[in-house]
């Protein structure tokens, strides 16, 4: 579904990603862990098509197609979703307005009619309830004045409505209290399907207790320095990133 080969990315003169290789198949859950500043969010941004970066080498294929020239909105409509580490506050635009515009943009791209207003409300309220979100958040401006936890839930709400094929969740767990973590995890798990893949960027094993990944990758200084299964996350929790660094330096 997603195939990244030897991806090199620069911002200005600064290399940030230095040869990323990753393959994600439908149904899989990949966790990406790694120290602050290692390039995790950059990777998510690049996959979603954010401007301001220079791809100096490598390829990104989504569903067998080279997407490096696709606009962010095209990628979104084709099924890529990014839950932001820091969801943006947009005063003056209500949550529900954006949700509807986003869903209809996707439906139009698929050749479908715009969603019926009543069906839309029913759909949104359903998802809202599952995420234990207050209905009033729908009519507030996007993320404006939302608490940290409300913002993260709002990202998952958008995901639930847009039903992407590939979801990249960038630290969706950080800043959540214990109950919220469970609710959000349930929300994410509810979307798990053999056709849908997810990339979870996280610093904590805790999330991975709820959503068990098939693969865990460690990103450090713009490179994936180790990949493994769920047990790698447990190891990291215990020993930190230092032991991998030691291990990699020793083996090289």
């Amino acid at each position: 579904m997603l195939e990244i080969k030897d991806l090199h990315v620069k911002v200005g003169e600064k290399p940030i990603l230095k040869g990323i290789n990753i393959q994600v198949q439908p149904g899989e859950i990949h966790a990406i862990m790694g120290p602050n500043g290692s390039g995790k969010s950059t990777l998510g941004n690049i996959i979603s098509g954010r401007g301001g970066y220079e791809i100096t080498d490598g390829t990104i294929y989504f569903e067998g197609k080279d997407i490096h020239e696709d606009l962010p909105e095209q990628r979104a409509r084709n099924g890529i979703f990014l839950a932001f580490q820091y969801p943006v506050e947009i005063p003056g635009v209500t949550n529900i307005y954006m949700l509807k515009a986003a869903l209809n943009a996707k439906r139009r791209a698929q050749g479908l009619d715009e969603i019926d207003a009543m069906d839309f409300i029913t759909l949104v309220k359903d998802k809202l309830k599952a995420l234990k979100m207050d209905e009033s958040l729908l009519y507030r401006d996007i993320n404006s004045g939302f608490s940290g936890g409300e913002k993260k839930r709002n990202e998952i709400l958008q995901m639930a409505i847009l039903e992407p094929k590939l979801a990249i969740l960038d630290e969706t767990d950080s800043g959540l209290d214990i109950d919220a973590l469970r609710t959000v995890s349930d929300g994410i798990n509810a979307l798990r399907s053999p056709k849908r893949a997810m990339i979870l960027v996280t610093h904590y094993q805790r999330l991975l207790d709820y959503i068990k990944p098939d693969f865990v990758h460690v990103l450090s200084k713009g490179k994936i320095i180790k990949s493994g299964d769920h047990s790698l996350a447990l190891e990291l929790e215990k020993s930190g990133y230092e032991w991998i660094n030691d291990e990699t330096t020793q083996s090289s």
Partner: peptide
């Protein structure tokens, strides 16, 4: 720019995203 990318990443095209921000303003 962050707001524009946020909206685009939800599938809203750039022109519509700009309009949303301007009207919101």
């Amino acid at each position: 720019e962050d707001s524009l990318f946020y909206l685009q990443s939800r599938g809203v095209d750039l022109t519509a995203a700009k309009n949303m921000l301007i009207h919101g303003f």
